[in-house]
Structures are given as structure tokens and as C-alpha cells.
């Protein structure tokens, strides 16, 4: 069943690739924030699958901390977007 891991990783990797493309071409700053949010959620999944493959549940702690920091990052960027009213972003 080893090859199934490769399938899962390639699916997640394609998802990450699409979000990164949007991160680069996104016309407005808010599009980039959206793609970063999606990117973070996919990375949480990658960490959890790695934990399962390495058979070590310490990696799940890292996933929890990553989820916390991802949420915080989304909030900070959203508030930053709102912060300046006059800019044409």
C-alpha cells in the first residue's frame, strides 16, 4: 500500500500548486490572503499525513500549533486589509 501515500501526496501537492499560482497572480491583495488561507489548511493535512507515516504523534502537536498560527495569520491579514481606507488595493 506504499504507493497510495504517493497518490495522496500528489493530490495535496497539486492543490498547493494551484493555490500558489493564485498567490502569485492574484490581482488584489485579498485574493492573495484567500489563497494563503487555503494553502495553510492544506499544509495542516500534509503535516498530519506525515505524522501517520512517521508513526509519531508528536507531529500532531505541530499540526495544532500550525492551525492556531494559521488562524491568527488570517485574522491579522484581514485586519490589515481593512486598516487603510483610502488605498486602492
Amino acid at each position: 500500500m506504499e504507493w497510495m501515500d504517493y497518490v495522496v501526496f500528489s493530490l495535496m501537492g497539486l492543490g498547493i500548486l494551484f493555490t500558489v499560482i493564485r498567490l502569485f497572480i492574484g490581482p488584489k491583495l485579498s485574493d492573495r490572503v484567500v489563497s494563503l488561507d487555503t494553502f495553510n489548511m492544506i499544509v495542516i493535512g500534509v503535516i498530519v499525513v506525515l505524522a501517520s507515516i512517521f508513526q509519531s504523534n508528536l507531529y500532531l502537536d505541530i499540526a495544532i500549533v500550525y492551525a492556531i498560527l494559521a488562524f491568527l495569520e488570517t485574522v491579522v491579514f484581514a485586519r490589515y486589509l481593512e486598516g487603510k481606507k483610502d488605498d486602492n488595493r
Binding site: L58, D61, I62, V65, I68, L69, L72, V75, V76, R79
Partner: peptide, 28 residues
């Protein structure tokens, strides 16, 4: 994370940073 610094990766520095980030969240 702080209490399990001697058993798992983590410890005082990351735990303290997460406390501060929770405070930042309430500020925002």
C-alpha cells in the same frame, strides 16, 4: 506546550510566543 517542554518538542519559548499571539488576537 510549556509544561511538556522536557518531554515533547516545544517548551518555554514557543509556548510564551503562543500566549502573546492569543493576546494579539484579542487586541485585533
Amino acid at each position: 506546550i510549556i509544561f511538556h517542554g522536557h518531554l515533547t518538542p516545544g517548551g518555554g519559548f514557543p509556548g510564551g510566543a503562543i500566549i502573546a499571539s492569543a493576546v494579539l488576537l484579542l487586541y485585533l
